[in-house]
Design a protein around this nucleic acid. Sequence first.
DNA 1: TGCGAAACGGACCCCGGGTCCGTATTGTTG
DNA 2: CAACAATACGGACCCGGGGTCCGTTTCGCA
Lengths: 201, 201
Amino acid sequence: MPERKPRKDAARNREAVLAAADTLFAHCESPEEVTMADVAAAAGVGKGTLFRAFGDRTGLLRALYAQRLEPTRAAVESGPPPLGPDTPPLQRVPALLDAALCFKFENRHLALALEETGSTSPYQAGHYARWHALLRDALAQIPDVPDADFAAHALLAAVRADLVEHLAAQGMRREVLRARLADFAARVVGSAPEQDASGSG
Amino acid sequence: MPERKPRKDAARNREAVLAAADTLFAHCESPEEVTMADVAAAAGVGKGTLFRAFGDRTGLLRALYAQRLEPTRAAVESGPPPLGPDTPPLQRVPALLDAALCFKFENRHLALALEETGSTSPYQAGHYARWHALLRDALAQIPDVPDADFAAHALLAAVRADLVEHLAAQGMRREVLRARLADFAARVVGSAPEQDASGSG
DNA sequence: TGCGAAACGGACCCCGGGTCCGTATTGTTG
DNA sequence: CAACAATACGGACCCGGGGTCCGTTTCGCA
C-alpha cells in the first residue's frame, strides 16, 4: 500500500486545522461550544476541507489527541525508566498512572471533548486499549495482585478526564492530585505509598 | 410554597412518559438513538407536553433515574445493615459500592444516557454528590485510609456506567464483576477480600 | 352548566454535523 | 512554458433532533 504523499496545500491545511483546533479547544470553557464551522473558520479553511481531511468530528479529535499524546507514547514504548519497558512493574505501574494523569490534566479539554463525543464510549478508543493492556501486563507481574485486568480498568477510571476536570475545578492542584493518585495506586498494588510526586510534566 | 397539585391529565401523562421512556431506554442499543419525539410518540403524547413536564432531555433522564434509584436510596438512607446508616464502615463501604454497581448494571442504558448527555458532566449531578459524600464519610472512619475524598471518587469511578457496559459487553457476568469490584475495594480499604458476592439486586 | 385556568400537541424554528459539486491549485508531461 | 488530468478547495445546502409557540382542548370549581 503506497500511501501516496498528499498535495502540498492539503498538508498545509491539515496542519492549519490541527493548530486551530488545538487552540480553540484549549481556550474554550466546554468542548461542545467549539463547532466544526468554528474550527474551519479559525483555520481559514472551508468546512469541506476540514471534513475531507479528518472524516468527522471524532476523526479530528482523535488526530489531535494522538498528536498531543505522541511524546508520552514514545516515552512509554521506548523510553528510559520509570516509564519505559525496562522498568520493574512495581515502579512502572505508578509511573504509568502518573503519566496518564499528567497528560489528562494538561489536555483536559481535549480529552473531555473526545470522551464526550456521543456514540463513542472511550472504551472503544484504541488509546484506551493500549493503556489498559500496558497497565494490565504490569500489574499481572506484581505478586498478590489478582484480577489485573479489572484493576487496570479501575485504576484508569481514576484518571478519567471529567473526574480530573471536576477535581481541578474544585481547586485541587496538579501536584496534590498526583500525590493522591500515587497513594491510591500504592494501596492497590499493596506497597507503602511513595512520597515522590515530582518530575515529568 | 404551596406546590399546588397538578391536574389529573398532567399527572397521567407524566407517568405515561416515564413509562414509555423507561422501556425505550431499556430496549435500545444506544441511548442516543432514542429521540425525544420517539418518547413522546411512544407515550401517546405531544412533544410540547413532554417538554413542559420535564423541561428538557436531561430533566427527563434525571426524573427517570431518580425513580429507578428510589429503592436503593431508601435502603441506603434508612434501611438495615449492610446498606443502612447503622452499618460499621468496614462493612458499609463494600456494601455501598456493590449497591452502586448493581444499580448501574441493571440500569446501564439509562445511566449511560444520563452520563453522556453532553454539557452535563456526571460530577455535577446531585446523585453523584450524595454517593460520594456517603462513601467519603464511611471511608474517613476507617483507620489507615488517608484522602478519603479522593478514594471515594476513585472507587466510584470504577462503577461508571460506560465501564460497566464495556465489561458487560465483553461478556463479564454480573456476579463476576461484583466479585472483582469487591476484591478491588478490599485492597483499597486494606482488609482481606471477602468471598461474598450474593444477594441484593 | 358555564367559565377561567391549566394542559395539550404538532407545526415550526434553530443550530450543528456532514455532503455536494462547480471552481481553483497543483504538478506532470511534452 | 503550455496544456491537461488529478486533486483539493469551500461554502451553499441538506437533514435530523432538541426545544418553542400558540390555537385548541380539557379540567375542575362554583
